[in-house]
Design a protein around this nucleic acid. Structure first.
Lengths: 340, 340
DNA sequence: ACCTGGCACTCACATCGTGCGAGTGCCAGC
DNA sequence: GCTGGCACTCGCACGATGTGAGTGCCAGGT
């Protein structure tokens, strides 16, 4: 079937097409790579590769371009990891220095990833499911509104405002103390039961405000930080101004839909720890994204928070470099989250 | 100079050009509007309008298109406010129902604004400068890291993590109590002095952790919630797939730079309360955005939080509708923030 | 003084043919 | 099984042409 030379030819086609973005013919292929055979031989090989579905010609008498299947083979068997440039190494090893808080870390990460890959970057907030509750704060804002803040040991701070009837500062203080005494040190998973019990035998005076506050807290506990996603590098799409309808628009639309992004990242990350996952063209679950590829990796650890990050770009993409960058960034962010 | 008919002609040109996006000629102008004169007369008027700089021809023997100056005159003197459609009214009056917290309000607002205007929407977080500090929370995360949370009476919650040497829970509790006793009820503007004094005569045991915490708090007080901005409706740029370089790319780039967005909104909003500001083409402070217009309005009140929202689109835009939508959304959000 | 119809003129743009060149498939020969 | 040669295919860039929308100007009418 596919002997070594044919694989070399495929590799050369992918490499050339990615850098030139034009169909590649037999002659230039032999010239640009050190293939020690004639163009005619390469043509025969290409005919076989085409028959097997790894490459196609856009029209008769044009060069060949890789199919999704061709890219897949390239990524799986042919790509040699391209080492990062010194500049990239430096950028990656310093971009998180001085980060202020988690938002800042996420923001810096997405910017870096977009910069080194020149693609659109997506980073999911890390989820630290085993965290303990560290503090519940309850603050009266106006006479009939209050703010609930939930702080966990992993540094997550979540807030909600809600309406309360007849709030007195005393009652708020009482409720705050009560909540904290019952919740501090508890894992969120266990907190739901605890809160339900608390709601049941609540002091009658506290009940009017306690009930809605507990409802909000339950809701906050049920929600997950990892359904937050940041996106960056959208201007990188400008390079594809030509194929607007096929490439740019679907990506723009997907980027506004967090649900879509999360599903994309979720499916991509369901693989081995720290490995880089590549989804090429039609392998994507969304029809509109079939002209694009996704390169993703999970990062972090379960205890420090774990999530996925990656980039979206055209199927014609420099996979070796991109995969190296994504892996490097994922590792670095994971290490940073662990060390603090 | 410009008699009524010439103004009518300008108005007709703007209207037609906005809807057709093609240069408009004298004949079709007379046909589509009820101008009771001949094309030749209109041509003479157009010659005058061109001489005065309100319209130009893209090339000889083509129709005319409005200049920025022409749009400006149109917006200032000719545009009649277009009433919102029932569907828009309905959307605007219900889109905030069930909002969970401020993030949610901002998110819903930006989506709504993008939807009703079919442009890219920008919403700035409201700033309530006169707020009091309601609570300072200090939480140890690991042995050498802590989380500082600052809560104000306007419902702002800001967080930072920082590294601390040798943290004991006792010291943290002590410092937390100390900070709260000095800061609760104080306006942020006065808090800086108070903190400086506190840092000066800090108990010796607390000093190693107190000093960095106070430094972080000072930094948090100096920062302003209103430097946060949310953006939505980016896929609406897809309609301008043609003029990528002139319109789409600069906007995409500006959207990634919060600083740019804030300056844009800031300059736009420096006007009267609740009035809709329009910046057309070259009136924008950024050269790359000279093919785009900004329609913005401030919203909210000083006490409840005040900021700016708006949309960015091509200079060829339906100003009456857009201005009506922006104004309606700004008013509604303002009212919502006031009522809670 | 102002409007109007007529007329010659100007270009952008679409259409069509043409030639070129990159690339192919196939075949005979080494 | 590789290679050089050769005829063939087509996309595309290029130049010529015609068409039509739109203009400016002018002379005549109200």
């Amino acid at each position: 079937m596919l002997d070594d030379r044919k694989l070399d030819v495929l590799k050369a086609i992918v490499t050339d097409y990615v850098s030139s973005k034009e169909p590649v013919g037999s002659k230039s292929l032999v010239e640009r790579h050190g293939l020690r055979v004639s163009p005619a031989t390469v043509r025969n090989d290409m005919a076989v590769l085409e028959e097997e579905g790894y490459i196609v010609q856009p029209h008769t008498s044009a060069g060949r371009i890789p199919t999704d299947k061709g890219y897949r083979l390239f990524v799986d068997r042919l790509a040699t990891v391209k080492p990062l440039s010194p500049a990239e190494r430096r950028a990656i090893s310093t971009f998180l220095a001085g980060a202020i808080d988690l938002d800042d870390v996420m923001g810096r990460t997405v910017r870096l990833l977009a910069q080194v890959t020149s693609q659109v970057a997506i980073v999911q907030y890390p989820a630290a499911p085993a965290a303990q509750i560290r503090h519940v704060e309850l603050v009266g804002l106006t006479t009939d509104r209050a703010l609930v803040v939930l702080i966990t040991s992993s540094g997550t701070v979540e807030q909600r405002t809600l309406e309360l009837p007849h709030v007195s500062d005393d009652q708020i203080a009482q409720l705050r103390a009560l909540l904290n005494s019952h919740l501090i040190g508890i894992a969120p998973s266990a907190a739901a039961d605890r809160l339900a019990a608390l709601a049941a035998d609540l002091d009658l005076a506290l009940r009017p405000i306690g009930t809605p506050v507990i409802a909000v807290l339950l809701d906050m506990l049920a929600s997950d930080a990892s359904d937050r996603v940041v996106v960056g590098g959208v201007p990188n799409l400008a390079r594809f101004g030509d194929q607007f309808e096929t490439t740019v628009r679907p990506v723009l639309e997907a980027l506004e839909e967090n649900v879509v992004l999360l599903r994309l990242l979720g499916e991509a990350a369901s693989s081995v720890d720290g490995a880089v996952t590549v989804r090429i063209g039609h392998e994507n679950p969304y029809e509109t994204l079939q002209a694009t590829s996704l390169v993703a990796s999970s990062y972090g650890t379960v205890s420090d928070g774990r999530a996925t990050l990656g980039i979206v770009g055209p199927t014609r993409m420099d996979y070796p470099s991109t995969m190296a960058s994504v892996r490097a960034v994922a590792r670095y962010v994971g290490r940073f989250l662990a060390e603090g």
